[in-house]
Design a protein around this nucleic acid. Structure first.
Lengths: 141, 141
DNA sequence: TAGTCTATTGCAAGTATTTTCAATAAGGAT
DNA sequence: ATCCTTATTGAAAATACTTGCAATAGACTA
């Protein structure tokens, strides 16, 4: 079963629908090496689907993020962007040069447990963005 | 020395200026019990300073956040908001009811060390927002 | 396969945020 | 106290994002 088929099953099971527009957004994120902003997704999607609106892109991204099919993340400049949800991970981005490093969720898992135990909350944040200075930029300061 | 005087010193030492507008934003956040969105800050600031523009508020908040005098955080609905930087802490917000709980930075400190060691980055994220379900909403599901 | 329900879309209008640039004013130097 | 440099502001325009609502079209049912 392809990943878009899995996504389709997931949505239907919850009473929602898979549409060409949402599929298009998933395809675009699937082929993107990097995070894309809503505008970037719109530009690419509009090529395949003339008549598609920005409104739909914003709604599709928010919807897919709610269902954990895509992850929202922040770019170096603090802008919202999205990427396909693959394995659970977070990002560490350099404030100076924008370079990004993936942080596996396993490293954060213990903290989630600690927080859940002390607060009683059930935490489901799928993505965190840490900011800092990469080794290279750190030395230049 | 009051906290605004400290802020003033901090900025001047870095070659920037303390202005009535920035001072007003700091005062407002100082007196706010909760996070405020840029719009909320603007509404309150406009009462004291007629002629003040929203542009200036956005810029002042971004500027103050860069200098760690205020912290940016996300509300339950994912909107950007700001609060005065007091002690280092993060937030845990309920996706269902919006209730917020403070998470002391001490809990996260070990993770920062781990990440710094494995990545070589110097991490300086001042605020993280975790999402989840509070004990009350968790039970209702 | 056709019918029904309602989630989803597109459009238009509204609100929020950023950018550009000339005018202003903070604060160090004289 | 006055001058100078340039960081900062305000105004307007551009861009980004959200909301309301009628029309459309997934996907379940028979």
């Amino acid at each position: 079963m392809t990943c878009t088929e899995t996504a389709l099953q997931t949505l239907r099971a919850r009473g929602f629908r898979m549409t060409p527009q949402r599929l298009c957004v998933l395809e675009i994120l699937h082929n993107a090496p990097e995070h894309l902003t809503p505008q970037q997704v719109y530009e690419r999607a509009a090529l395949d689907m003339p008549g598609l609106t920005e409104t739909t892109i914003y709604r599709a991204l928010e919807f897919l993020a709610e269902h954990n099919l895509v992850n929202a993340a922040l770019t170096a400049s603090g802008k919202l962007s999205y990427e396909l949800a693959r394995h659970a991970h977070h990002h560490l981005v350099c404030r100076a040069c924008g370079q990004q490093v993936e942080v596996d969720h396993a490293i954060l898992a213990p903290i989630y447990s600690t927080l859940e135990a002390s607060s009683g909350f059930h935490i489901n944040t799928s993505h965190l963005t840490f900011f800092g200075l990469c080794p290279h930029c750190k030395d230049k300061e």
